[in-house]
Every structure is written in C-alpha cells, then in structure tokens.
Nucleic acid binder design. Sequence first.
DNA 1: CAAACATATGAATTGTTGTTCATATGTTAT
DNA 2: ATAACATATGAACAACAATTCATATGTTTG
Lengths: 121, 121
Amino acid sequence: MADMNDIIERCGFLCVHEATVERVLSEMPADEKLYDLAELFKVFGDSTRIKILYALFEAELCVCDIAQLLGLTQSAVSHQLRVLKSGRLVKPRKEGKTVFYSLADDHVRTLIAQGMEHVEE
Amino acid sequence: MADMNDIIERCGFLCVHEATVERVLSEMPADEKLYDLAELFKVFGDSTRIKILYALFEAELCVCDIAQLLGLTQSAVSHQLRVLKSGRLVKPRKEGKTVFYSLADDHVRTLIAQGMEHVEE
DNA sequence: CAAACATATGAATTGTTGTTCATATGTTAT
DNA sequence: ATAACATATGAACAACAATTCATATGTTTG
C-alpha cells in the first residue's frame, strides 16, 4: 500500500487543461443551488406536467377539469399537481369541495415560452 | 354490453367545467410539441448535466476537463454529453484526439438563468 | 505498425419516477 | 348523521435513467 504512487490516480486525466479547470471551478455556483436548479427542471421534464401547465396558461382549472382534459385518472393528476405545487409552479385555491389550480407566477410562463422557442427552431 | 349506459363513464367527472375545458383544449399546442418540450426540460433536469452546462458557461472544455472538474468517470461524462448533444444544448469541436464541448446557443444560457431566478427567489 | 491516449459505446445494475388501485380526508346537501 | 362528491395519499408495479465496467473506435507519436 505504502509503495503505491499516484500514477494510477492521475491515469485517465492526463489531458486536463488545469488552468481552465481551476478558473471554471472557482466560478461554479454552490452545489446545492445547482441541485435545486436541476430539481426545478425535472418538474418541467414530464409531458403530463407540461400539459397541465400549458392548460393552466389559459385558465384556472379544477382537478377534474384537468383529468378530463388530458384523459387521465383523477389520482394521476392529483399526484402530479402535488409535484408541481411543491416546485412552486402552481398554487391551489379552495372553493368548497373543489380545488382550483393556477400558475404560481410568471416565471413559469417565461420558462416554458423560452423552452418552446428552442424546440421550435 | 348493449345495455350499458355511460353513467359509469361519466362517473368521476361530474364536476367538470365543460365550457372552460373546451376552450382550453382548443388552445393547446399539438401533443408532439408538448412532448418535445418535456424532453428538452428533462435534459436540464439532472444535476450532473446542469453542472456540465454551467461549466461550459465559462469555457470550452474537453471531456477529461469536465470529468476532473466534477469528479466523475470519463465514461459517465461522455454518456451525459451524448444526451446534451442530442438535445442540441452542446456542440463538439474535434481537435486531434481531444473533443472540446461548448454551449450550442444562447437559449441554453437564457433558460438556465431564468431557472436560477426562480430557484433563488 | 505498434503503443499510448482521448473519447465513445454496450451491457448490466441500481435507483428513481409515473401510473394505478384502494382508500382516506374533508366538504356539501338531504 | 348519512350519503354523495372532490381531492389527496399510500403502497405496489412497471418503465426509465444514471453510473460503472469492460471494451471498441479513432488519432497521434515513436
């Protein structure tokens, strides 16, 4: 063990451009922020949830509305709304037994619009 | 079978706000577009890939650079670069045996910046 | 051409995620 | 209070995705 040098460690990284790597590393945001950012995009990264968000572009909708609109189970929709809610992308408004959902803020609109631009080009 | 009416079908969707649903449905983009959009966000929705993209904010980097920067295997990085490349988020530039990657266009920057805003508020 | 190197790829494995089914919670009306 | 209804939740299952390991491809150097 003591005799091992670090050739084995370096091996496979011989081509590294050290100066650049150092600089980039110093500019990187905290790991936690990057993790949160990935989590945010993950929420957008499902076609069911995108459909729900797009539907909410147009109007405030209750769970049943969304379920029928997309041809999904009430349960499936409810589960996905929970994900969207915990990502702060939608917000609920309770009225009697029904719960109406709407977009939480304008970031959602902007982000989706921006994404659509990339997809459409 | 012939005797069955559609009460069972309707059951569970009694609360639907039909007019709204109709309108929203007519405004929805094609399913395929929504699917593509979800696919795009899915690519952003992984912390390893977000880290790679953020690193490329600062500089053009080769596979080894990225691997060392993030403490990952060369193989893992290469696999993820393939995903990023097929989502048209990064582009390769070959120089001898090494391949340098950079951001494909400015949408990437904009989208990530927008996402970061949402996360940071 | 052979060896060293940078990157890419395929298969296997493990962890994650979306949907379904059954059921629970909470609200309105009779 | 009981029944009907809207939504939420938990467990189970199936599909998917990220990493690792082994190896292949393609490029440069001796």
